[in-house]
Amino acid sequence: MFGRTYVRESQTAAFARFAAKRCALAVPVLIGVATVVFATVALIPGDPVTSMLGPGATPEAVAELTGRLGLDRPLPLRWWEWLSATAQGDLGSSIAQRRPVGEIVMTAFGNTLVLAAAAGLLVLAGGVALGTLTAVGRGRASGRLSSALSIVAISAPQYSVALLLVVLLGVQAGLFPTGGMYDAIGGGGLGDRIHHLALPALAAALVPMGVTARVYAAALTDVLNADFVESMRARGLSEAAVIRHAVRNALPSLLTIGGLQIAYLLEGVVFVETIFAWPGIGQTLFQAIQARDLPVIEAGVLVTAVAFVGLTIAVDALHWLLDPRTRR
């Protein structure tokens, strides 16, 4: 009696194959991304050398700096050197700040991740709650209300929401700080950080929360109407067990859309960070664009795009694990 069990094909090797293939597919995309970034930045008007030295610089000084930065050499050569240096983790040094770009961008990106993680939690929690209400209440007032709420959330531009929150909850009510990551004096504790996180996270979370809610509602509706749910009821499974199966079946869609939306949080942070003075990648990018700081722009866009590609791979992998039907 003991030890008699089912025969299951091992999935470990299949997953390893899938993951390897998926990562290999990402390599050309990443090279393409790097090329687009390089090409775009190479087109940026405004001479970084003059902006560094100021208008009164001598032609000799300009020529010297141009040569030192390598800006006088042919584009394809600069592209290749930049690409191979980047692949080795060398992102160059900032023209404006005279610091290694890697240091600037990674610090900023870490701060952005904190913001994105907090917003991500809001996206998943709010998306699941609104989506469930929409699906379960379909055809009733509660369903229509939550559906309308998710449309409003989808439509809410991050900067409008950010400003609204700053004015209403920050300035008028004085409930939340309106900028920065922590108080300059006596700040930095967990409570203080959460206090500073609340408004920017909410502003960044609304749009992806709305999208998540709508897609999850559609998926859950499909599952609840699926034949197998009725079959389970016909076999006398408890309603709780039936719902458990249904939610489990809507989970792959939730994680796919939720994961992608968390990736899209990275685009909203440009505005949110600018308004809330959050020292993340968005603010860094904004400042770098205004200062024509080429290496920082390149690295900032690149790091965001790489994180984005990484997240899509993670989402695909999760989907593979959660839905056996995708394992072909």
């Binding site: 089912y6 299951r8 699926a226 034949d227 197998f228 009725e230 079959s231 389970m232 199966h245 489990r248 079946n249 792959p252 959660l322 839905d323 056996p324 039907r325």
Partner: peptide, 9 residues
């Protein structure tokens, strides 16, 4: 195909 939960063995 409507009798079984597609995601469980």
């Amino acid at each position: 195909s409507g009798a079984l939960d597609p995601l469980r063995r």
